[in-house]
């Protein structure tokens, strides 16, 4: 009996199925918290939508129409049972299915997040590796100073500098807006992704630098140097691969940051993504829409963690995911 329990336990710890269950659980708790938190904020959608001139009676009537007059617990049970069937309700502000709104907005945000993460890795891997190998030289010093500056510059300032440089002076990218077609959208995403990368790549590069410096102290690196392992193979298999674990672990943190910076970036660069509409929905007390977006964020974070685990298993065969 105990053996079975143990097996079931390890199954839940490791299997892909357990990840999906985990995602469902995370979303469930997130939804519950957000559902009640939203209702604790003074004000409600009926008041916002009808405006200041509406009478109390009109507001009451509208509440009834939206079903907000019922006890919160009843609303909650109703909402959750629908949510688990894939129905996230109708946006109060837009009178449109929340799932449909997300479906139309999500691709832009995913493209933004994807190109940001890609750019962050492309910038951070060589930078961090070089900064580790040359950490005793002027380059190491230069790296410390510039990354500190980049990390501590506020995002609205960085984005304006980039817009001024790339869009106004050099006219390389459009100043704002989004082209949904695939190859063209990368051009419109370049400046926003770069802005985000300038904030995130230094963080990753520093994590990598510290990790590679630790790896360089390892005996197997010394032994490999004496054996005379070919330079490229040495860089990848002996310095980078054994040092990547902390960077992959940071992906979880990055997922959250990419989403929260994404809100600001979508506003600054006028990208019709999830972040931009989220602000609008929060202002309007659009309960259903906000709840839907939050559940989505939870799913995204769990998905990134899964991705990080899979990456880790590929990089380091000791961390095996079934």
């Amino acid at each position: 009996m105990q053996g079975i329990i143990k097996q079931v336990g390890s199954f839940f710890q490791h299997s892909l199925v357990s990840r999906v269950l985990q995602a469902v659980l995370v979303s469930f708790f997130l939804l519950t918290i957000v559902f009640f938190l939203l209702r604790l904020i003074p004000g409600d959608p009926a008041m916002v939508l009808l405006g200041e001139n509406a009478s109390m009676g009109q507001v009451e009537e509208y509440r009834k129409l939206l079903g907000l007059d019922r006890p919160p617990m009843e609303q909650y049970v109703d909402y959750m049972s629908n949510a688990f069937q894939g129905d996230l309700g109708v946006s109060i502000l837009r009178r449109q299915s929340v799932v449909k709104i997300i479906a139309s907005r999500l691709p832009v945000s995913l493209w933004l997040a994807g190109s940001t993460v890609a750019m962050v890795f492309v910038l951070a891997l060589p930078l961090g590796l070089l900064a580790a190998v040359y950490h005793r030289t002027w380059f190491g010093y230069f790296f410390r100073v510039t990354t500190s500056i980049a990390i501590s510059t506020p995002i609205y300032f960085t984005s304006l500098v980039i817009l001024l440089l790339l869009a106004v002076k050099l006219d390389l990218v459009p100043i704002a807006g989004y082209d949904p077609e695939f190859p063209k959208n990368l051009r419109t995403l370049f400046a926003p992704a770069l802005t985000n990368s300038i904030l995130l790549a230094p963080v990753l590069a520093r994590i990598l630098q510290a990790s590679v410096i630790d790896t360089m102290e390892e005996e197997f690196v010394e032994a490999a140097i004496v054996r005379g392992v070919k330079p490229l193979r040495f860089m990848w298999h002996y310095l980078l691969r054994p040092s990547l674990a902390p960077c992959i672990a940071a992906l979880g943190y990055f997922a959250a940051t990419v989403v929260s910076y994404g809100v600001l970036i979508e506003i600054i660069f006028n990208l019709p993504g999830v972040g931009m509409s989220l602000i609008e929905f929060v202002r309007a007390f659009d309960y259903t829409a906000v709840q839907g977006f939050v559940a989505l964020t939870g799913l995204l974070v769990v998905a990134t963690t899964l991705l990080a685990d899979l990456l880790n298993a590929w990089l380091d065969p000791r961390a095996n995911l079934k």
């Binding site: 390892e218 197997f220 010394e222 004496v226 054994p242 990089l315 380091d316």
Partner: peptide, 15 residues
């Protein structure tokens, strides 16, 4: 010149 490093644990690349 051949070299045998200090620890058998860390002397080989783990991956």
């Amino acid at each position: 010149i051949g070299y045998i490093p200090q620890s058998s644990m860390a002397g080989l690349n783990p991956i």
